[in-house]
Design a protein around this nucleic acid. Structure first.
Lengths: 223, 223
DNA sequence: CGGCATCCGGGAAGATACTG
DNA sequence: CAGTATCTTCCCGGATGCCG
């Protein structure tokens, strides 16, 4: 017995091992992903994580709050709702998530036709953006994925994203399924087809829309 | 029943989610770490992963072989032993592991005094090396961590590492515990103290040894 | 000894129902 | 809507044993 260790630790000074302690449990990193562009409520998190059960989500939120990755916030009355938000440090995990995604997407097991949350799509843009293809672009682009708005700012080879309305954007996409936009960007499906089918609505600078589709080259699959 | 889904999938097109399917199970990434600098046998892997059980190691090796991350190799007779080696793609996961480690090491929960495998130490060097501090260095450095030899080549702001003897190196460290070298590099413990205590043996260019200790600045802890 | 199958106990994940 | 309680299932970890 000696000391019944609190959890199962790797007992390893390696930083990667600690990362696995912190966010290695099932669902943890995906919760971080959903929070990456702004605070979310409990039910919104569930909606972005199909398959997670309420009790597991509760456990993960508690654990990552204790670890300093996220914090619980009470919005002031009259809204008075509780939301979960990443800490600054929690947000810095994006680089690691991007590296994981960039690596895994080369696997033949990757199936781009599976469902996708809005946060996933925005993360994929930030991960796959090729800065050498963005010469001369400085534009605000709005996305509406189902009920979720995102405001992106493409400038200087980078893409900033927050959860916010972007009514003043030069270009706005609206769709019920993030996969629609993924099909265009990563699958080469023509925007006109998606619009004709009613799956996608585009407002604003159409030339920019077409160019936007070309900014995110996928790495080659492995042999 | 329809089709009892093979495993529990996230059902998510996000690359990060796939990465978690591939290497998100307990121990998987640490096994990859142990293989990062050269093939290893079953028992050697166990030695570098204190706490893993044989059946779990077997499962992980099978799973990652099926995923194309590693492969089983039979060395030609008379050696005839079986070893596990990363595929090229598996080796490319190092960037993601490094990003995870770089992020997690800023947590106040990080305890650098826990035990450390030789592979962990080499990974940490590659992760934390500050290229701006290596001006003018082109040197081969050997490490012996317990029974495990590593040959490092520091040049042009990068550190290449393989599992190999390095008898021709300009500088050679030998210790039973990787933590000894970690204490010097990351904890600021003077080399002379470690040598005097018998924990570390240094052969070759002592000035290079002293400078080597200064090349790996740790990122600041979070508030 | 290396590699793998099998069995078991404990604990974490998944599904559902329930409560404020 | 935001969780909690409960139950079942599955995975992890430890031990044992088989076979090369």
């Amino acid at each position: 017995m000696s000391k019944p260790v609190e959890k199962r630790w790797y007992d390893d000074a390696c930083g990667t091992a600690l990362a696995l302690e912190l966010v290695g449990e099932r669902w943890s990193l995906l919760i971080v992903r959903e929070l990456m562009f702004g605070p979310r409520r409990f039910g919104e998190l569930r909606a972005g994580l199909p398959g997670i059960s309420a009790n597991v989500l509760t456990q993960r939120l508690e654990g990552m709050e204790r670890a300093g990755i996220l914090e619980r916030r009470k919005l002031p009355p009259p809204a008075s709702v509780q939301v979960y938000a990443l800490t600054d440090w929690g947000r810095e995990s994006e680089a690691a998530m991007a590296a994981l995604g960039r690596w895994a997407v080369r696997s033949p097991l990757h199936d781009p036709r599976l469902p996708l949350s809005g946060a996933s799509l925005m993360m994929s843009f930030r991960t796959m953006l090729d800065p050498t293809r963005t010469r001369g672009i400085d534009a605000r682009i709005g996305f509406r994925i189902g009920p979720d708005p995102f405001a992106a700012h493409l400038h200087d080879g980078a893409l900033d994203v927050v959860r916010a309305e972007a009514d003043d954007a030069a270009l706005r996409f609206a769709t019920e399924e993030a996969g629609t936009i993924a099909a265009a960007v990563y699958g080469g499906v023509p925007l006109a087809d998606l619009e004709a089918g009613g799956a996608l609505r585009i407002e604003g600078d159409r030339a920019l829309a077409e160019r936007f589709m070309t900014l995110f080259p996928l790495p080659p699959k492995i042999a």
